[in-house]
Design a binder for these strands. Structure first.
Lengths: 228, 228
DNA sequence: ATTATATTTTAGACTAGCCTAAATTTTATT
DNA sequence: AATAAAATTTAGGCTAGTCTAAAATATAAT
């Protein structure tokens, strides 16, 4: 088994690759881990000897298959715990992250299987992020950011990009939750802010910055639509 | 906050004091922690500077009020997690210890309050051990070991002394669980083994060694009893 | 193509927690 | 009370993970 620290490095590398392409730099890991580049180099050597990463001096890092499996297992645990906290213990979606950061390192296969079962095998966590299965298979989401859509488009909210408590609290206050139907009533050309309705209710305004952090899937076209 | 290691030392010291009187030796801590006396001395110095223990060189150790509060908080978390595992995730009472050893170090007041609520504020854990309240108050148990009782005494099982999986599994196999009524049908003078009935069923034999590890409370005398 | 800048690695040092071996103190025994 | 035995502490060293400062390499700019 890995130490908590090793697990956190692996997870950070996974998330950086997911977000910014295929190889990842020492500095970016240092930033994400709130540590210094020299410390990262030390850890990279260690993770390399454990065959968790591909690493050549000065050349950046990728995860090996083993490393990716490790990362996905940690993410699985993190997201299942978040779901547990929200579904069973009345946590809000902006309160779960720090606790799940701790719980994700608990080492017990039976525990995580039983949590999964207890939650009735959820597919996504409280933020709409997909939960990898026990084998590390992850359902790639087809969601896109709301800011990409146009006037009159109708979407369903499926997730968020920014996971910060302040953003999530803002969404709560605005009635923007997973599963709502969002229709774009107007796009302000000047700043690309949006006027939207939530579940066909009265319209609200959101900034482009907010729209860039809301993930949606465009609703299926109705029978009388022009397109297939 | 304390490190996991510090918390484990504090817990070990608490348990040693609980079991063997008021001050506790370096060697006994080393044994309980599976470590060496020299390592214990290092840690004792550290815990002393943190005002968690009373410590004078060569004179043994006691917990300060702060240290005892710390210990009881860890024990509270451990026992609540054990209860959660058994009640909600279908763990057996012999499977919970190792996982609870990990979970007890999770640092979140809200989490443990919600677990407590979710379990409907249990008073004891799956082994019958009392759960300290949020303020660190512990209900002292009035239980005694079954081996102290005599022929014809009727008791209710309330706990165990030995918590090892093998002992707990033996009890399961024998139908000996918390809450059962045990009547002592006979005491074999030679080895103080017992013939008992469980919930007035057919009698079984248990050794003195087993009886010394079963905690019970003698049943209230009936109206037609001789004593008050 | 050379130089300047940015990135990354190495060197050496620090803390937490652990170890062994040696020294010290306490306790038990005569 | 003196000595033997046991318990405890100190001294010094190890690993994991961190740091700063300096050296090495890669990238960008002329």
């Amino acid at each position: 088994m890995q130490s908590f620290t090793e697990e956190n490095y692996i997870k950070a590398i996974y998330k950086l690759i997911e977000a910014n392409g295929n190889t990842v730099s020492t500095n970016s890991i240092a930033e994400k881990m709130n540590t210094k580049a020299a410390s990262v180099t030390d850890m990279l050597k260690k993770l390399y000897t454990k065959k968790l990463i591909n690493y050549k001096k000065y050349q950046g890092v990728t995860l090996t298959t083993k490393g990716e499996k490790t990362a996905l297992n940690i993410i699985r645990k993190h997201r299942l715990w978040e779901m547990f906290l929200v579904e069973k213990l009345d946590f809000k979606w902006d309160e779960v992250h720090d606790v799940a950061e701790q719980l994700e390192h608990i080492d017990s296969d039976k525990l995580i299987e039983q949590i999964d079962k207890f939650l009735n095998y959820p597919k996504v966590d409280p933020h709409g992020d997909p939960i990898p299965d026990a084998k590390g298979k992850l359902n790639v989401t087809k969601s896109q950011v709301l800011s990409k859509f146009n006037k009159n488009d109708v979407c369903v909210m499926t997730g968020v990009v920014d996971h910060s408590p302040s953003f999530l609290q803002y969404l709560d206050k605005s009635g923007i939750n997973l599963g709502i139907e969002i229709q774009i009533k107007d796009v302000v050309l000047f700043d690309r802010s949006l006027q939207i309705t939530i579940n066909k209710n009265t319209a609200i305004f959101i900034s482009n910055e907010v729209a860039k952090n809301i993930l949606v899937i465009k609703k299926n076209y109705k029978k009388n639509s022009l397109k297939v």
